[in-house]
Simulated scan of single mutants.
Amino acid sequence: MAYSIEITQSTTRKQKPDPNHLIFGKHFTDHMFILDYSVEQGWYNPRIIPYQPITLDPAARVFHYGQTVFEGLKAYRTSEGRTLLFRPDQNFKRLNRSNVRMSIPELDEELAIEGLRKLVEIDQDWIPEVEGTSLYIRPFVIATQASLGVAPSHTYQFLIIMSPVGAYYAEGIHPVKIYVESDYVRTVKGGVGTAKTGGNYAASLKAQEEASGKGYSQVLWLDGVHHKYIEEVGSMNVFFKVNGTVITPELNGSILDGITRKSILELLASWNVPVEERTISIEELYEAHKNGTLEEAFGTGTAAVISPIGQLCWKDEEITLNGGETGELSAKLYDTLTGIQRGVLPDPFGWTMKL
Rank of each mutant, 00 (worst) to 15 (best):
238 V>A: 04
192 V>H: 02
216 Y>E: 05
229 Y>M: 12
244 G>E: 06
242 V>D: 08
284 E>H: 12
234 G>R: 12
288 A>K: 14
261 R>M: 05
223 D>Y: 09
201 Y>K: 11
202 A>T: 07
231 E>L: 00
234 G>S: 15
214 K>E: 15
209 E>L: 13
265 L>W: 06
248 T>P: 08
192 V>W: 02
195 A>L: 08
237 N>A: 06
191 G>N: 03
248 T>N: 11
260 T>H: 01
194 T>M: 15
213 G>N: 15
293 T>L: 09
248 T>K: 11
284 E>A: 14
217 S>W: 14
258 G>L: 06
219 V>F: 10
299 G>S: 12
191 G>L: 10
286 Y>K: 08
222 L>N: 11
300 T>W: 00
205 L>F: 12
283 E>W: 11
296 E>D: 07
191 G>H: 06
236 M>K: 14
249 P>Q: 10
233 V>G: 08
240 F>Q: 03
262 K>Q: 15
200 N>F: 11
260 T>S: 01
219 V>N: 08
217 S>I: 02
251 L>W: 10
252 N>W: 01
290 K>F: 08
241 K>I: 02
229 Y>E: 14
204 S>K: 04
224 G>K: 01
257 D>Y: 03
245 T>K: 14
250 E>P: 01
247 I>Y: 15
289 H>D: 12
190 G>I: 02
202 A>N: 02
197 T>F: 05
230 I>W: 08
237 N>E: 03
288 A>H: 14
212 S>H: 13
223 D>N: 11
285 L>V: 12
283 E>K: 07
228 K>T: 13
199 G>L: 12
272 N>T: 09
214 K>A: 11
253 G>L: 04
254 S>W: 00
281 S>Q: 05
263 S>Q: 07
212 S>L: 13
194 T>G: 09
255 I>T: 00
237 N>M: 08
250 E>M: 07
203 A>D: 09
283 E>A: 13
245 T>N: 04
239 F>P: 04
248 T>R: 04
233 V>E: 10
209 E>W: 06
230 I>Q: 05
270 S>V: 01
280 I>Q: 04
207 A>C: 04
240 F>K: 07
229 Y>K: 14
215 G>T: 05
202 A>H: 07
299 G>M: 10
236 M>C: 09
260 T>V: 11
278 R>I: 09
259 I>C: 00
252 N>K: 04
229 Y>T: 13
219 V>K: 06
302 T>F: 00
228 K>D: 15
303 A>P: 03
231 E>C: 01
241 K>C: 09
259 I>V: 15
300 T>M: 01
190 G>M: 03
300 T>C: 15
219 V>I: 13
243 N>C: 07
287 E>S: 10
221 W>C: 04
261 R>W: 07
271 W>T: 01
294 L>G: 06
294 L>R: 05
240 F>C: 07
191 G>D: 02
233 V>A: 12
233 V>H: 06
186 R>N: 03
256 L>V: 00
202 A>I: 07
258 G>N: 05
295 E>W: 15
270 S>Y: 05
200 N>Q: 10
193 G>M: 08
220 L>F: 09
198 G>L: 05
273 V>A: 09
251 L>C: 07
278 R>T: 08
296 E>W: 04
302 T>R: 00
283 E>P: 02
272 N>W: 11
246 V>K: 01
265 L>A: 02
209 E>A: 10
261 R>F: 03
295 E>A: 13
277 E>M: 05
